[in-house]
Design a protein around this nucleic acid. Structure first.
Lengths: 148, 148
DNA sequence: TGAATATAGTAGCAATTGCTATTATATCCT
DNA sequence: AGGATATAATAGCAATTGCTACTATATTCA
């Protein structure tokens, strides 16, 4: 029965994404795209490679996500002055406008998802999941080292 | 900052899937397929529609997953004697053989993921995530009713 | 210097998924 | 009974993703 935690986390994460996507259907922004934008907000000027690593997708996948966001005028590619192979990514003003509304929606979704939990329980939840994530993350890094 | 829980759950679930898939690379079984097989184990004879709902994919997606599993001789389609439109799904003996090894691996993965957590903390983790899942699941059902 | 190697990003292809429409069968209702 | 409607499963198409190979540029080191 011990596979329960993996299934449970996956189920819950999927429900989160589904709720999120249902609420943003009109805007054309998916949960994954919003995740990208959120990271970008905190790391403006980042290059595609490191950002791909942050949100844990392949570089080529990120490249195409950025294509679409550039098309939607939410993200801007600027040439890196220090490396002519690379792009630096920036949010457009239009993205800033979207972020406000999105964040309110995400906050509301989180509030609904944790309804009935005390503040202490929420903290505990975050802390426990973070420890699980750290365990898995460490494992995966080890594997990569072994392969390399 | 309150979108943290959604991101965190998604990150952790992804790491779980990734670890799982890395370990089963040779066997050709993905995390999602194993999930299907696990459900099927407990509901042999189920039809495709209800199973799709259980693992939360579209019926057509399940149809194709089953195509592949039939191809791999892990699942068998039998005509439903009561409804000539429908198939009943059964595991083959070959699937039973696989399940044993998979379960051991999944147990090991779970153990590694929850390393450093006490038994009480694991229980608490499961309980808290289950409450979040119940909140989200209830929300989604409400939405479906509104739409219908 | 300049040849070997590494890195940033992208294109082609194959696999997977879901939306919409379709076929075959079942159920409902008059 | 039999016509209208609902349901189980699937096919066509488009979107998304990742593997592999590739181009362009940077770095390393003899």
């Amino acid at each position: 029965m011990s596979e329960t935690i993996g299934f449970l986390l996956n189920d819950t994460a999927r429900l989160f994404r589904r709720s999120f996507n249902a609420r943003t259907k009109g805007s054309g922004i998916t949960a994954l795209q919003w995740r990208l934008i959120t990271y970008l907000k905190r790391h403006e000027g980042i290059r595609q490679g490191p950002l791909a690593e942050l949100i844990e997708v392949e570089p080529i996948t990120l490249s195409r996500m950025v294509d679409r966001l550039v098309e939607a005028e939410l993200v801007e590619r600027r040439a890196d002055p220090a490396d002519r192979r690379a792009w630096q990514l920036y949010l457009t003003p239009r993205a800033g406008d979207l972020l406000g509304g999105m964040r309110d929606m995400a906050d509301a979704l989180t509030a609904e998802a944790t309804e009935g939990l005390t503040a202490a329980e929420r903290d505990q939840l975050v802390e426990l999941v973070e420890r699980v994530r750290a365990n898995l993350s460490r494992r995966i890094c080890q594997k990569e080292k072994e392969t390399a």
